[in-house]
């Protein structure tokens, strides 16, 4: 690539400066979270008053915070597994079978991407309240399922499109039944997509706010808990400390996800 069209792609100094500024502006607001988690003041404002790690050591005694984190992990884990299973089944059906009205079905599946989340939130709230279903983590999970499904399908579709159906046929010809063909041929081939989908849907559910805002009962998810704490400075530094830890963990997770997601694709 670089040996071709060099006079078009020659280094462009202003653009490099722009890129550097862009990245700085992109990262500064995010880096404030860890910055203030080490600040020796309950108020999140400048100037910084001193370095402390007490918010981190105090984390252990913040029972409701851990409770909210655990709720989010539970919902995220269940939602990501269900979404990915449904996504695998749907992506396989979409790529393997000729179906009339297929493109309409795919469009329908992708609908949550083009409708503001708040509308889904209130629509589900109306349905659940009319049906007399009490709000709980299950209802939050249902909301997240709707939000996450299109992402699972969109992640898995290219995987299934990229692999040759004759592999499955060969396995069937060699005497494997449908279930074993899936486990021994199809699943290993799409595995990177499955991991990417699990991580993506988990992250979306973990961070999702507006659905949880309308559908949470008495047990808050982490974003709901943080929302509640925004007005109470005493508790807020520990929220920042917890968020910094989560930030670090999610950066690691994203790198792993990207790495696994590209693994199979780059080999070709």
């Amino acid at each position: 690539m670089s040996d071709r069209g060099t006079y078009i792609e020659r280094p462009n100094r202003p653009l490099q400066v722009y890129a550097a500024i862009f990245l700085i502006v992109l990262y500064v607001p995010i880096l404030f979270i860890p910055l203030f988690s080490f600040n020796d003041s309950i108020y999140v404002s400048f100037p910084l008053t001193g370095f402390t790690t007490k918010w981190y050591s105090e984390l252990w005694s913040r029972e409701p915070l851990w409770n909210a984190l655990w709720n989010s992990v539970k919902v995220g884990a269940v939602v990501s597994v269900i979404c990915t299973i449904l996504g695998v089944i749907a992506a396989r059906a979409i790529t393997r079978y000729r179906m009339p009205g297929k493109s309409a079905l795919v469009t329908f599946l992708m609908m949550p991407l083009v409708i503001p989340g708040i509308i889904f939130g209130v629509a589900l709230l109306v349905l659940l309240s009319r049906a007399g279903v009490p709000l709980s983590l299950y209802t939050v999970g249902l909301g997240h399922l709707i939000v996450c499904l299109p992402f699972a399908v969109a992640t898995l579709l290219p995987r299934f499109e990229g692999f040759d159906p004759s592999m499955e046929e060969a396995s069937a010809d060699l005497g494997e039944n449908g279930w074993f063909t899936f486990w021994r041929v199809t699943f290993p081939m799409v595995f990177p997509g499955v991991v990417a989908s699990l991580l993506l849907t988990f992250t979306i559910s973990f961070d999702e706010f507006i659905m949880a805002f309308f559908l949470t009962g008495t047990d808050p998810t982490l974003p709901m808990y943080i929302w509640g704490q925004l007005r109470f400075p005493q508790q807020f530094p520990s929220v920042l400390a917890m968020s910094s830890l989560i930030l670090f963990a999610s950066f690691v997770l994203v790198f792993i996800a990207q790495w696994i997601g590209r693994m199979g694709l780059e080999k070709k």
């Binding site: 607001p29 404030f32 979270i33 992250t203 974003p223 920042l240 930030l247």
Partner: peptide, 14 residues
Amino acid sequence: WTSYLLRVFAWKVI
């Protein structure tokens, strides 16, 4: 991939 809520909050600080 970081919390949307906290990113918005960070702008409040800025």
